[in-house]
Amino acid sequence: MTEHYSTLTQMGITSFDNISRYQLRREARADVLKIYYHRPKGSLLSRSKKFTFARPGSLGPMEFQKTEQWHRLEDTSPVLRQALLELHRLLGGETHSDEATLDTKQQLLADLEHMERVMQDKLDELRRQIEALK
């Protein structure tokens, strides 16, 4: 199976069957790919992995960087593009990167909700680990 997903394997991903979804978002100077896994309750394995792909700096003035055209630029890493193709193929054509179509307010609200979920999941995970030590 690793021969079908060579880019993901090079990124350190080995449990292809446990991948549940992925998310791609753009930050100021990087693209961030986050891969989520199915994990059983009580598992100490991480539920996600995050990969950051830097983009070339200074592609345009700051005013342009805030426009929709900026977010559609094809300046992503070739490794990221290949990883996305492999993830798309692995998950049967499902895509989870619809956030690119949201307007700015919706994007900020989605980011806020995502951060709240991440923080709550991390707090729950730490509590489970503390309980396991007792």
Rank of each mutant, 00 (worst) to 15 (best):
Y36W: 10
E131M: 08
E3C: 03
M119C: 10
L59F: 09
G12Y: 02
L126P: 01
L87N: 05
L80T: 06
A132T: 11
Q23P: 00
L108K: 14
L84K: 05
Y37W: 05
R55Y: 04
M11D: 08
L108E: 14
Y37A: 00
E116T: 09
R26V: 11
Q82D: 11
L44R: 08
R128W: 05
K105G: 04
M11T: 02
D124A: 00
E63Y: 00
T14A: 06
S77H: 13
Q10K: 13
T76Y: 06
K66V: 08
D111L: 02
L45E: 13
K49R: 15
F53I: 11
E131Y: 05
E74K: 14
S46Y: 07
S15K: 14
M11K: 08
P61Y: 05
H96M: 04
R128P: 01
P56L: 02
P40G: 05
A30R: 15
R127K: 12
L87R: 07
D121G: 07
Y37L: 00
G57H: 07
H38V: 14
L90D: 01
L80P: 03
Q10E: 04
D103Q: 13
E94N: 13
W70R: 12
L91I: 09
Q107M: 06
S15I: 02
G57K: 09
S15W: 03
F16H: 03
L45H: 10
L8K: 08
L87K: 07
M119Q: 04
G92C: 07
A110P: 00
T95M: 11
H96D: 07
T14F: 06
K66A: 13
Q106K: 14
R81M: 06
Q129G: 05
H4V: 08
S6F: 03
L73H: 08
R29M: 08
P61G: 09
R81E: 14
M62Y: 11
K105L: 15
L24W: 05
R128C: 07
R39N: 12
D124T: 03
L84V: 04
Q107E: 06
L123W: 01
R26Q: 15
F64R: 10
K34W: 00
K49Q: 14
P56Y: 02
Q129W: 03
